[in-house]
C-alpha cells in the first residue's frame, strides 16, 4: 500500500485479482476528482500503453487490467507509482454538452406517478426538476454505454424498487437511489422509469460505441410523443 505525499492527491494501489490493480483515491467523488482521474488515466495510457489490456475509470478509482504473461504485477505497480508521483497537468479535456430528448409521457414513464408520490411532488414538478439540472458524466459501466451521472436533485432521490422489472426497454430513463441514468440496452433493472429517449445511447458499429465520456455534460429535454416517434424513426433509418 502506497501513500504519496509528493503529489496533489493521496492514493493507494490495491490488488484486484492476479491480473489487475486498482488505484483508489482518498477523496470523495467530485467533478475535480473525475478530472484528475481522466488526467491520470490518459497519462497511464501514454506512458505504458502496451502493458495493459483494459483501463476502467470509476468515481474514485482507476482499475488497470494487464497481461500477466507480459508484465509482473510488482513491475506494473512500480510504474503506476512513478506516474502518480510525478506532477500531472490537469486534463484540458473539452467537455461536450449532450442534449438528450426524453419523452416523459405515461406510455414511456411506467413509474413516474409512483416516484412523484414518493417525492411528494406532482408529475409535472418531477419533469421540471429532472430537466432543469445539468448532469456530469463520472464514469461508464454496468451495461455497455451506461453513463453514471452526477447532479440529481436531492428532491428526486427515491430508493430502488424491491422487485426489479424483468425487461426495461433500451432508452428508458430512470431514477434509483441518488442516481439518474439511461438504460442503453434492454435489461432487467430496479430503477423507477420516468421516461424514454429515442437517442441511441450505444451503437457497437461506431468506433466509439458510447455516446459520451467522463467529464461530458448531459441535459434532458422534454419532448412529446409525436416528436419521440419522429426521432425514433429517423434513428432507425440511419442505422439500417
Amino acid at each position: 500500500m502506497n501513500v504519496a505525499d509528493s503529489c496533489s492527491f493521496s492514493y493507494k494501489i490495491v490488488d484486484n485479482g492476479d491480473a489487475a490493480l486498482t488505484i483508489i483515491f482518498d477523496e470523495p467523488s467530485s467533478e475535480i476528482l473525475t478530472r484528475k482521474i481522466v488526467t491520470v488515466q490518459q497519462k497511464i495510457k501514454d506512458s505504458s500503453g502496451d502493458d495493459f489490456l483494459d483501463i476502467i475509470p470509476a468515481y474514485q478509482s482507476i482499475t488497470i487490467l494487464f497481461d500477466l504473461l507480459k508484465i509482473s504485477k510488482d513491475n506494473l505497480k512500480k510504474k503506476l507509482s512513478d506516474i502518480l508521483n510525478q506532477s500531472i497537468e490537469p486534463s484540458n479535456y473539452q467537455s461536450k454538452l449532450l442534449e438528450i430528448p426524453v419523452c416523459y409521457e405515461s406510455e414511456y414513464a411506467l413509474d413516474l406517478s409512483e416516484l412523484a408520490r414518493h417525492c411528494q411532488m406532482s408529475e409535472r414538478q418531477v419533469i421540471a426538476t429532472h430537466t432543469s439540472e445539468m448532469y456530469l458524466v463520472h464514469m461508464l459501466g454496468f451495461l455497455p454505454g451506461f453513463l453514471y451521472l452526477g447532479g440529481l436533485s436531492s428532491r428526486l432521490y427515491c430508493p430502488r424498487k424491491n422487485n426489479p422489472t424483468a425487461r426495461i426497454p433500451a432508452g428508458s430513463v430512470g431514477i434509483g437511489g441518488e442516481q439518474t441514468g439511461i438504460y442503453p440496452v434492454e435489461s432487467p433493472g430496479g430503477w423507477h422509469i420516468i421516461g424514454c429517449t429515442p437517442t441511441p445511447m450505444f451503437d457497437p458499429t461506431r468506433d466509439n460505441p458510447a455516446i459520451a465520456s467522463p467529464l461530458d455534460r448531459v441535459k434532458f429535454i422534454a419532448i412529446g410523443q409525436s416528436e419521440f416517434l419522429k426521432l425514433q424513426k429517423k434513428y432507425e433509418e440511419t442505422t439500417q
Binding site: 483501463i55 476502467i56 487490467l65 461508464l140 451495461l143 455497455p144 454505454g145 450505444f202 458510447a210
Partner: peptide, 11 residues
C-alpha cells in the same frame, strides 16, 4: 474484445 471496458463493454 479488449480495451472497451471503460465504455461498459465486457470482454
Amino acid at each position: 474484445r479488449h480495451g472497451l471496458m471503460h465504455q461498459g463493454i465486457s470482454n
